[in-house]
């Protein structure tokens, strides 16, 4: 219980930092850290396989994609940095207050409406579920990866 709470606090503060920080690179690192903490939370919720995916893909691969994109674009210079920081602060200063206020209000008056959980079935194995029950989703994954490949062919190549 306590460990969950601590992990969730870390998760939320990492997310807020991701949004607040000025440099894009730091923001991307913040996102990766958020993913890593999320992987730990998912692991604690009895879902180890999804945690592995979250850790390797979301904390590992997606920052790489983001950094590749950012490295092709224009980097903010040393002179512009303070100006940009000030401008951002104007727009983003409300976030921590909103989060704290919303958190306080929610923890004060948030009540889960009573409802019945569906009856728990027998224990299932993820591998069986993926291969025998959700194999249509697997086909969908293959097709969407193909679409991504065509996207790379079309979008990442410079004509002329």
């Amino acid at each position: 219980m306590l460990i969950n709470l601590i992990l969730l606090f870390v998760l939320l503060s990492a997310a807020v930092w991701t949004v607040m920080t000025t440099r894009l690179i730091r923001s991307i690192v913040g996102l990766a850290f958020t993913s890593a903490v999320l992987a730990a939370v998912i692991y604690r919720l009895n879902s180890p396989l999804a945690a592995v995916f979250e850790l390797s893909v979301c904390a590992g691969l997606i920052p790489v994609i983001f950094i590749t994109t950012v490295s092709f674009t224009h980097r903010i210079s040393k002179e512009e940095l303070p100006v940009a920081r000030k401008e951002r602060l104007v727009r983003f200063r409300y976030l921590p207050f909103i989060i704290i206020a919303a958190g306080l209000v929610l923890s004060w008056c948030f009540k889960i409406p009573q409802f019945n959980l569906p009856a728990a079935g027998p224990k299932e194995d993820v591998r069986n579920i993926i291969w025998y029950l959700r194999h249509l989703d697997l086909l969908g994954q293959i097709v969407i990866l193909l679409a991504g490949a065509f996207g790379v062919v079309v979008l990442f190549k410079e004509d002329k």
Binding site: S47, L49, F53, V126, R134, G140
Partner: peptide
């Protein structure tokens, strides 16, 4: 198990 299959996709 079902939730994990969904999340992986």
């Amino acid at each position: 198990a079902l939730a994990q299959a969904i999340v992986i996709t």
